[in-house]
Design a binder for these strands. Structure first.
Lengths: 146, 146
DNA sequence: AAATTATTTGCAACAAAGTTGCAGAATATT
DNA sequence: AATATTCTGCAACTTTGTTGCAAATAATTT
């Protein structure tokens, strides 16, 4: 058994890129594969490490930028300085993200996990405040590290 | 009428610093004054601008670090790369922060505001996930910009 | 109130993170 | 297979954050 992508995911990756009018290149395939493999979120640094220095730093930056613009990934805010990225669900289109689920950051393994099944609860804001997006980040110890 | 701090706030600033066993210096006074004046949160860059390049970048970094350690300020996570800091309430002590209120980021004016009166609601997590801290960031249009 | 001690500041030098222009390489189109 | 388009990697640069150390400032002692 190998650790490489199956034909299944290859087809999936190809489809996502073409569907977003992006050229299918090695770097984009590899980075997208990383996101599909990890159910959690990835920081820029993680990606550089996991691709094994195969691609230039600049390429990784630009790939993440493009994926953001196309609505393939979204950012997750964190209290430390590291911005993390995670895959968007299908409903996400260019500029419009609908990832209203809770994110969990594990203090032990450092992983950020999308808790798809946990919805962000409603909150009542003071008069005059008009919300457009709500982010909820829970930190602690994850399932695996428990 | 001048824009400088009143004697009242001067005394307050002095008290906060001494209470935390910190030397009372110009930079610390000025930076703390900025936090007391703005009801919102400040990024490192904001502070550099508002102090009018009076202090070295390094001093600002170190002052924020010390204020963090002493529990005078806390960080607010954001989706962009800029970490913001805000004053902690009195209950905050070294290492222990109790700022479980909602933070609001205005897309118009860019300000981050602490909604002290809005508590972060409880969420049920899947089995095995042990939460220690919950952050909630709402973005949209604030009271002033509405 | 002056002298001593302890702490803090600013400089310089560096490290890390992110950006931009452009020629060559890879992908897509005809 | 040839052309047009897009993407990559390099180099050079900007921005952001860190560290060591001597000079300056604040706190303490006499």
């Amino acid at each position: 058994m190998n650790m490489h992508s199956t034909k299944q995911t290859d087809i999936q990756i190809d489809h996502i890129l073409k569907h977003n009018q992006l050229s299918v290149t090695d770097s984009r395939k590899k980075i997208l594969e990383l996101f599909l493999q990890s159910n959690g979120a990835l920081a820029h640094g993680d990606i550089e490490k996991k691709t094994g220095e195969k691609f230039d730093r600049v390429t990784v930056y630009r790939t993440l930028q493009v994926f953001m613009e196309k609505g393939i990934i979204h950012t997750i805010p964190t209290a430390d300085n590291a911005v993390r990225y995670a895959l968007c669900k299908d409903e996400c289109t260019e500029g419009h993200h609908h990832d209203n689920h809770v994110h969990f950051v594990c203090n032990a393994c450092g992983n950020t996990i999308c808790l798809e099944e946990v919805h962000v609860p409603e909150v009542k804001l003071p008069k005059g405040f008009q919300p457009t997006e709500v982010q909820m980040i829970v930190s602690g110890i994850c399932k695996e590290c428990h």
